[in-house]
Design a protein around this nucleic acid. Structure first.
Lengths: 210, 210
DNA sequence: AGATGCATCTTGACGGCGTTCAGATAGATG
DNA sequence: CATCTATCTGAACGCCGTCAAGATGCATCT
């Protein structure tokens, strides 16, 4: 009996359905992966989770709040992807480029999730709050800080992080554009294309210092 | 009589309403500016133009095609903004940065229109077709080509253009994020912030060449 | 154990959306 | 003037997000 309760607690089914909010977020991610962002309606999520269309309103204020929860998971996943990329490149020389490549790859491999993440951010005109103190954004900043040996001023460090983040985001949103296909092929694949673009980001700085 | 016809032809009112497709695009832009992208429904556009909800379907296949027309105007407007920026900076030293600043300013001043432009592109996984031969993208490429004195290889020129474009787009989408407000203030305004970010874009190239 | 309370879920409804189709309208053509 | 045809309307369909009222059943207290 107490074992049953234990199992129930582990599975966290507090009431009728059992941790519906978690089930809804999982259903949403399932829909995102299989049918894309356009199919992600609140009703479809409820359907996928096997509950009525009104059920989600006992766990989320509105559709936006459910998407926020999905986006939150997305940021954690991105964080994990960047952590792995950072740990893999022992050579600090191309650690920044490797980080950029990992970022864009995450977006390319999870396009629907990435879209939800940024749509939520735009609705609030802000990145997730936690990112400034920890998480993906912080990893980029730390990597830059390491690379410069901690010599950069706080303002320069912040500017450089923002610059890197913007470049990564821009490339992430355009990597799949058809116009770039010939160039990708000419360079021998997407990886080379990605590195090529990142290495050309110096053009502003390089040119204006010449 | 022929004068009337002339006027009518000038105003281009072929049938009942009179150049409804143009009126619809204008109505859409009006809604975008006053109420934002979320309010841009096909029905609202028809309402604003004073026609029934079904009328637009005689001029556009669906909502997406109307948005395409709006986006098309947006790309022309961006083109004009970049042309002006390019002509203003006689000094070629900061012409690239000036172009970047103009790009981001356009996005900041026309956020709803800019959003529609990129949403349409993402739906088709492609930038507008004309951009590779003329228009805004081409202006960036030409500016880079001038700056390097035409010494860059075609592939490098293309990569540099894409890099600049991605950086501009990324910054355009995040310029309004609240987290950057303190930094903007510390630098004495948005213009300085913008230039600061652009000048730090060299970090990939600079670091990896050290 | 039984009654009470309350979080949870369902049912049904409302207005708005994109889209379609049959029919009305009216400029253009002969 | 008659006809043709592009244009527009009205009504309808199924979907959406959201809400209010009522049913359900776990948890707690006596």
């Amino acid at each position: 009996m107490s074992e049953m309760t234990q199992i129930a607690a582990t599975e966290a089914r507090p009431y009728h359905h059992g941790d519906l909010s978690r089930a809804l977020v999982e259903a949403a991610r399932r829909i995102l992966e299989t049918e894309g962002p356009a199919a992600l309606s609140l009703r479809a999520v409820a359907r996928e989770a096997g509950v009525s269309p009104a059920a989600p309103y006992h766990h989320f204020k509105d559709k936006g709040e459910l998407l926020d929860a999905v986006a939150h998971e997305g940021w954690h996943a991105l964080d994990a992807a960047l952590t792995e990329a950072r740990s893999k490149s022992v050579d600090s020389k191309d650690r920044m480029t490797g980080l950029g490549v990992a970022y864009v790859r995450f977006a390319r491999d999870n396009p629907a999730l990435y879209r939800v993440m940024y749509d939520c951010s735009r609705d609030k005109d802000a990145l997730p709050d936690q990112m400034k103190e920890e998480g993906a954004y912080c990893q980029v900043r730390n990597t830059i800080d390491e690379r410069t040996g901690g010599t950069a001023s706080p303002i320069d460090l912040e500017l450089a992080t923002i610059a890197a983040w913007c470049a990564g985001h821009g490339l992430a949103e355009m990597i799949s554009f058809k116009q770039f296909a010939p160039l990708k092929e000419a360079l021998g694949g997407e990886e080379a294309f990605l590195r090529g673009v990142f290495e050309h980001l110096g053009m502003f700085a390089k040119l204006d210092q010449a």
